[in-house]
Design a protein around this nucleic acid. Structure first.
Lengths: 160, 160
DNA sequence: CTCAAATATTTCAAGCTTGAAGCAAATGGC
DNA sequence: GCCATTTGCTTCAAGCTTGAAATATTTGAG
């Protein structure tokens, strides 16, 4: 299983490309499936769910920039989504004493409650969708994704 | 490395969720990086690159629906992108003898040439970005992503 | 043959996303 | 303290994306 016929530089490159295409396709498939279920069962949108999910794990709130970095999404984007959540009474902006540029975003009680309803389903869906993977698969993939993430971070510093 | 403290149903679920979040984040990071380089070096857009990439591997052309299934993207979306590529003389639509509903999309010579220029860079970028993974990592991840894909296909048939 | 169902695509509105430009506030070198 | 730089956010145009509805064509059951 860990034996490979050739490990020349060219074949490694090809394998890397192959991995990337597979990673992308898998990721999109799962995302589509989650989006579909979220729409069908809760008439809700994935980006909104993602933002609320980030907020729900930070009882003290998050700055706009923190959200956008966590979700790997541009800043201008978050503004719009938080605006809408705020209009709907699900989130609110709180002033930060020391810094008048930034604000903390927090879920309202209504937001917490709504997220809780969706969140339980979401966990069950993921469990269902990834059900084919056992503990060994999970551990192996997580470890390798972590390694990949390290590479990406190192990349940031000097890459083109 | 393949030993896990607990494999109760709950901890498996949590690991699956953890894996999904990591998968998504990694995928977005790589995609962002590729998008950034494509824009900087070629003033080009990722969706257009993806469509041309699919077309370049099918000298006989692809139907709209085939492209959208390959890229995991909605059909209405492909229409717009192919429209633009066609306007710019990079792709063209060819009638199919037996079926007047569908058309084949093909790259023009100009499209082939343009894609070839971008494609070489793209391969080098992926090699650079995933450079931290050796043959063992690659094999391990590809095998597990394949297993996951099988699960997803099985899912399609009966899932909610 | 006939017509309902399936297939292939386009159209469209609503919403998401990016990247660049702009503004306000905070920071740090001097 | 001053002001150039950095940081945090918003605004905006262009483009992407989805999902649903509309259109056209083909297929298949009877």
């Amino acid at each position: 299983m860990t034996v490979h016929p050739q490990t020349t530089r060219e074949s490694l490159s090809k394998e890397r490309l192959r991995l990337w295409l597979k990673l992308l396709k898998t990721s999109r498939s799962i995302e589509d499936e989650v989006r579909r279920r979220l729409r069908r069962h809760h008439d809700w949108t994935l980006p909104r769910f993602d933002v609320m999910s980030a907020l729900s794990r930070a009882p003290d709130g998050l700055k706009m920039g923190e959200i956008s970095r966590m979700l790997k999404v541009s800043g201008g984007n978050i503004t719009g989504i938080v605006d809408k959540l705020t209009e709907e009474g699900l989130a609110l902006r709180v002033a930060i004493p020391g810094d008048r540029r930034a604000q903390l975003v927090r879920l309202t009680d209504k937001g917490q409650e709504m997220f809780a309803r969706h969140s339980a389903d979401h966990e069950a869906w993921i469990d269902d969708i990834l059900g084919g993977l056992d503990a060994d698969d999970l551990g192996g993939m997580i470890a390798r994704l972590d390694r990949l993430t390290e590479t990406l971070l190192a990349e940031d510093k000097d890459a083109d």
